[in-house]
Design a protein around this nucleic acid. Sequence first.
DNA 1: GTGAAACCTGAGTCAATGTTCAAGTTTGTA
DNA 2: TACAAACTTGAACATTGACTCAGGTTTCAC
Lengths: 232, 232
Amino acid sequence: MIDASDASLPPAAEPVVSVEAIQPDKTPRTERGKRTLRRLLDAAAAEFGERGYHEASISGITQRAGAALGTFYTYFDSKEQVFRALVDHMGRLTRQWIADRVAAAPDRITAERLGLEAFITFARSHKDLYRIVMEAQFVAEDAYRAYYRVFAEAYRRNLALAGSRGEIRPGADEERAWALIGMSVFLGLRYGIWDDSRPAAEVAAAVADLIAHGLTPAMGAAQTGPATGPKP
Amino acid sequence: MIDASDASLPPAAEPVVSVEAIQPDKTPRTERGKRTLRRLLDAAAAEFGERGYHEASISGITQRAGAALGTFYTYFDSKEQVFRALVDHMGRLTRQWIADRVAAAPDRITAERLGLEAFITFARSHKDLYRIVMEAQFVAEDAYRAYYRVFAEAYRRNLALAGSRGEIRPGADEERAWALIGMSVFLGLRYGIWDDSRPAAEVAAAVADLIAHGLTPAMGAAQTGPATGPKP
DNA sequence: GTGAAACCTGAGTCAATGTTCAAGTTTGTA
DNA sequence: TACAAACTTGAACATTGACTCAGGTTTCAC
């Protein structure tokens, strides 16, 4: 469900000359208008999510919303604009979802596991929006970059902070941030969108081990013997 | 540069009744034809890479190739078919590129670093094809999935083998494979496509440390003291 | 050299769909 | 209730671009 208030731009602190004088504001004024806008946003998310940006049509959106074609343009300037509104919406939704689920983590390593699990869970329960964000790379690249830049910067800060606290080894936090985001995105795709039969917690735990300890065998436990071969 | 032979489908071992009898084969027979096909493939890669699938036009491709519009359909059935041919081509090219650069690695951990570096380098030197593969998710999803399934399966096998050799800690190799691929893809995008000013080896080394040892501080060296604060 | 197959050409066809708009209906306020 | 603003409607417009095709040119085996 889309929050209708997201369609409007952030209020720009009392402009001297209202922009609406030139470009009429498309914010709904009545209750009916608000309901219609919400229906259109939900319909747009479904249409874009199912058919992709280019296959999606405005008439498909308005049909889903039970509105006439022209009504769309009462609330949006163009096909691309709704799409951008949805990408933007998704950004805030994702950050909130993950932040909520990571807040209680006692340390960074735990936070990584919970964050990963939250990401996969989120992808599963918002497949439409997830696809929209991914497609933004080709439809609204600036929005796409902005989406991940915000993520990466926050991630980098968290890693730096954890490093200074001794919770993790200090290191190249920017590269780490992008690497960890890439992990999440792909795992979200593979275990969230393509196949959601595996428990998210299980996948997250498996990968959290990789994030915590890497691939290197534990020192002193170096096994050179034959741990090989299938069980008979 | 595209290898023109990639445009044809894999030879299907002497069919009893040639398919060409029904659907005429579009393989070039003369030298001139081969040259034209190659020009068209290169042009298509450039057009799709620069403008994206939907913005790209057949006339754009033929113009780049210095051919007439109709010539395109002498060699391809549709816009989507060339696109798929390019995705397929990219798959083989990537695997070859990485395999070449990883072959000499003495162990899995080294292979990870070299593979990551190779991936970033590859993205940089084939930006067009890289973008085409990413967009395949929305244009030819089955081809996209196939592309990564092949990667992931090979990766999983390598990890399992390394695990049995004691080069790495045994673990959930499928999840690990997808996580590591996700890393590469995002790092390729961030440090290969968006900004290629950082030396690939540097980025790879930074992340290889994460892959090898994870985020956990070295045991016994747990630092609780103030390793914090900016240098004065 | 010759002729048939292969190849090239580009104007034209055709369907799809983003966007506009003038006319009608509903809402909310005074 | 009255009326202006807000909202709705869907036919019509305009553009775009994938794909076809009939006729001309080039290649190459013989």
